[in-house]
């Protein structure tokens, strides 16, 4: 079976400091990979390298493109990479305002990716947008409201709708539940889990919240100081942590 994403020895340095280094893994279709670690451990750097938003200093990120099979997205030319960015890839930012156009209505936000790949029928675009708002539990009468009038949780769900509307195969998520209160988090996670299963999405989720990966991720990668210190199945890593840092991380979770 061909992996959807094949990461080989990715390294990114900020001057003498290590962003992340020596990261390799394969991601298969339908698989959800979690990346956990403390602040500054390099998980966001890694995610940005994978999603083509940062250029890694070494290594290869091969993506299984529809037309030509595995292609290295690092050496791919920019138009192709940006094309992937609005068709087969999706990127969910931690802060919804980074991923949304705040001065454009909810419907326009969802429709943008459709129009970017050539949709030119207003009625169809609007129907698709309304359908997607419904799927992320935003009522259809909010379709013409701007995201500024939405709550944090709704903005995050809108961002997810906007990203998934073109049926991507790989979703990058950077702390998708960051800054939301627990009950809103729970609903969002429930929604994400449903969508991932339903659309058979592959996803890479960066978070520092172990509960999120427990719920969503099949596999887990633990990072510290730019290195991957432990990988394995999520339950295995969380229930039987081997590396000292992972043990610390797991034991640091507050129990209610």
């Amino acid at each position: 079976m061909t992996p959807l994403l094949q990461v080989e020895d990715i390294a990114k340095f900020y001057g003498h400091r290590i962003g992340c280094t020596g990261v390799s893994f394969d991601l298969f279709p339908g698989e959800v990979m979690g990346i956990v670690g403390e602040s500054g451990s390099g998980k966001s750097t890694l995610l940005n390298c994978l999603a083509g938003q940062l250029t890694p200093d070494a290594g290869a990120v091969r993506f299984d493109t529809r037309a030509e099979g595995l292609r290295d997205t690092v050496t791919m030319n920019e138009p192709e990479r940006r094309m992937l960015g609005r068709t087969d890839w999706a990127f969910v930012h931690q802060h919804a305002r980074d991923g949304l156009r705040m001065n454009v209505s909810a419907g326009g936000n969802v429709g943008e990716r459709l129009m970017a790949i050539g949709a030119r029928h207003y009625g169809d675009i609007r129907a698709e947008a309304t359908d997607w708002l419904d799927r992320v539990e935003i009522s259809a009468d909010r379709v013409d409201d701007r995201p500024t009038t939405f709550s944090g949780g709704m903005q995050q769900r809108l961002q997810i709708a906007r990203n998934l509307v073109t049926g991507p195969r790989l979703v990058f998520m950077d702390e998708p539940t960051g800054g939301l209160d627990v009950s809103v988090q729970a609903r969002l996670l429930d929604l994400l889990r449903g969508l991932v299963r339903e659309m058979n999405l592959s996803a890479i989720i960066v978070t520092h919240d172990l509960a999120v990966v427990r719920l969503l991720a099949d596999r887990l990668m633990v990072m510290k100081d730019g290195y991957v210190v432990e990988t394995g199945l999520t339950d295995q890593v969380l229930d039987d942590p081997q590396h000292a840092y992972t043990q610390l991380l797991v034991s640091s979770v507050l129990q209610v």
């Binding site: 920019e78 138009p79 940006r82 609005r86 156009r101 454009v104 209505s105 419907g107 326009g108 429709g111 943008e112 990716r113 129009m115 970017a116 790949i117 030119r120 207003y122 675009i125 609007r126 379709v143 013409d144």
Partner: peptide
């Protein structure tokens, strides 16, 4: 330069929706 003009239609979409 990359001929990415989807955004122009977002403006027209907003016009029609409003």
């Amino acid at each position: 330069s990359l001929e990415e003009y989807g955004l122009m239609h977002v403006k027209l979409y907003e016009d029609i929706s409003q």
